[in-house]
Amino acid sequence: MDIPPPAAGEELSPSLALVNTRFRLPGGPYEALAEPSAARAWLTERGLVPAGPALGPAQAARLRDLREALRALFAARIGGTAPDPGRVAAVNAALAGCPPLRVLDWTAGDPARILRTAPSRPVDQALALLADDGIGLLTGEHADRLAACGTPGCTRLMIRSHAARRWCSTRCGNRVRAARHAASHTP
């Protein structure tokens, strides 16, 4: 299966990267978190949980549930519609499971304000950090640039780097341009 590169803005927002773990490919749906081992690998690759024991099916399901809640809220923001209160409650519940704390870190060099979570289970910490990032994306400086990919059939979301950006990746842009070219050369 040919997986596209990360969508624009995923490097800025782990919650956007989470939302984009489920999407449609030309050959059908893609689910990056179908198995608990894949969910663990995704969290570990992003530094959200330490390497260690496998996630259980219930923990992987909680991650997928948070993803769907965030996807619905991002879609509401993009569409300018009212969010589903249940989805708002789901994000707030993830955050309440392990509230993040902003703390001062001044171990070397200049002081820095960093985000930490209160001690708890690693998955609770990861979900809280993802929920907090999602809230930041919905309310922060990138909120107005959150957009859906303009390629027909693509379900990924992105943060537009400029107003003219319409595609989540160069791959999607190339697909649209190739289709346009083929249509213009069809008798």
Rank of each mutant, 00 (worst) to 15 (best):
M1Q: 14
I3Q: 02
P5G: 06
P5A: 14
A7T: 12
A7L: 08
A8N: 06
G9E: 04
E10A: 05
E10M: 11
E11V: 13
P14D: 09
S15T: 01
L16E: 02
L16S: 12
L16V: 04
L18E: 07
V19Q: 03
N20F: 04
T21G: 03
F23P: 05
L25W: 00
G28R: 13
G28Y: 10
G28D: 12
E31L: 06
L33M: 10
L33S: 07
E35D: 15
E35N: 07
P36M: 02
S37E: 14
A38F: 00
A38Y: 01
W42G: 14
T44F: 00
T44I: 08
T44G: 13
E45T: 11
R46H: 07
G47N: 05
L48Q: 10
P50C: 09
G52I: 08
L55C: 02
G56D: 15
P57G: 14
Q59W: 06
Q59G: 14
A60L: 03
L63K: 03
L63N: 08
R64G: 13
R64A: 15
L66C: 07
L66P: 04
R67I: 02
L70V: 12
R71Y: 08
R71S: 14
R71F: 12
A72C: 00
L73C: 09
A75P: 05
R77E: 09
I78T: 01
G80L: 01
G80H: 05
T81V: 11
A82E: 15
A82W: 01
R87H: 02
R87C: 10
V88H: 03
A89M: 08
N92H: 09
N92Q: 09
N92W: 03
A94W: 00
L95V: 11
C98M: 06
L101H: 12
R102C: 06
L104W: 03
A108P: 08
G109Q: 01
D110F: 13
D110M: 15
P111I: 13
A112L: 14
A112M: 11
A112K: 15
L115Q: 13
T117E: 02
P119I: 11
P119F: 11
P122E: 08
V123S: 10
V123H: 12
V123W: 12
A126Q: 05
A126M: 01
A126R: 04
A131V: 04
D133W: 10
D133N: 13
I135C: 08
L137E: 04
L138V: 03
T139D: 02
E141H: 07
E141Y: 00
H142Y: 09
A143S: 12
A143D: 02
D144L: 15
D144H: 14
R145V: 01
L146P: 02
A147M: 05
A147I: 02
A148P: 00
G150E: 10
T151A: 15
T151I: 09
P152Q: 01
P152V: 11
C154H: 05
T155A: 15
T155M: 10
L157V: 00
L157E: 00
M158E: 00
I159S: 09
R160Y: 07
A164L: 14
R165E: 15
R166C: 01
R166S: 12
R166K: 11
S169K: 01
T170F: 06
N174M: 13
R175I: 07
V176I: 12
H181V: 13
H181D: 04
H181C: 02
A183D: 14
S184Y: 06
H185A: 14
